[in-house]
């Protein structure tokens, strides 16, 4: 469940407060009595916020909420805490080895050592049991080492490529947290 939302680059914790007569959200530790009812138009909702009622337009796509509120559009991102925890772990370790999923032979090396790569970039093509598999970067980073050259054969679990991760994101996040 998303309990953190990013608005204008700042993360806020939003937690339900159960056991109340109405829906109460604890936003960064402050309780707010809230409610939402559908409005008349598509995408329109009526926000009950404390004593106030306001017409708001809200749509979402892929965990991002676009909200038109008091004449201004805003973007609120629901944080996927699990994805963030994984990203942090990779960023902290600073390095990740891409292991061979099965024994095989290197067909092609698509990058060079020291090259900056983005998540999804092709690093290497391997062949095993007459099937070729693309080894792609799981996240942004720098190629620290290409452990095997074209034509080299390897066992399952062999290190194919070592990636150094860029941890700008986590640094930026930490900086944000410090700011808060």
């Amino acid at each position: 469940m998303a309990t953190e939302f990013d608005l204008e680059g700042l993360c806020s914790s939003v937690l339900p407060v159960h056991g109340q007569d109405a829906l109460v959200l604890s936003i960064d530790g402050r309780p707010f009595r809230v409610g939402l009812t559908p409005g008349r138009a598509t995408g329109e909702v009526v926000l009950e916020f404390g004593e106030e009622r306001e017409r708001v337009f809200a749509v979402q796509r892929g965990g991002i909420h676009f909200i038109h509120f008091r004449g201004r559009a805003h973007r609120v991102e629901a944080i996927d805490a699990l994805a963030r925890a994984r990203k942090r772990a990779v960023a902290e370790s600073g390095e990740e080895s891409l292991l061979a999923p099965m024994p095989g032979v290197v067909v092609r090396v698509a990058v060079e050592a020291d090259e900056e790569v983005e998540a999804g970039d092709l690093l290497m093509v391997i062949e095993s049991m007459k099937l070729q598999t693309s080894i792609r970067a799981p996240h942004d980073g720098r190629v620290a080492e290409i452990c095997l050259g074209t034509g080299a054969s390897f066992e399952q679990g062999a290190t194919l490529v070592r990636l150094e991760t860029r941890d700008e994101d986590s640094e930026a996040e930490q900086a944000k947290e410090r700011e808060r």
């Binding site: 469940m1 339900p16 707010f32 306001e54 708001v56 909420h65 609120v76 629901a78």
Partner: peptide, 14 residues
């Protein structure tokens, strides 16, 4: 807080 409320209240997972 109002914006975060809207996001949370319209967030399917939440």
């Amino acid at each position: 807080a109002a914006l975060l409320s809207v996001a949370a209240l319209t967030d399917r997972d939440f």
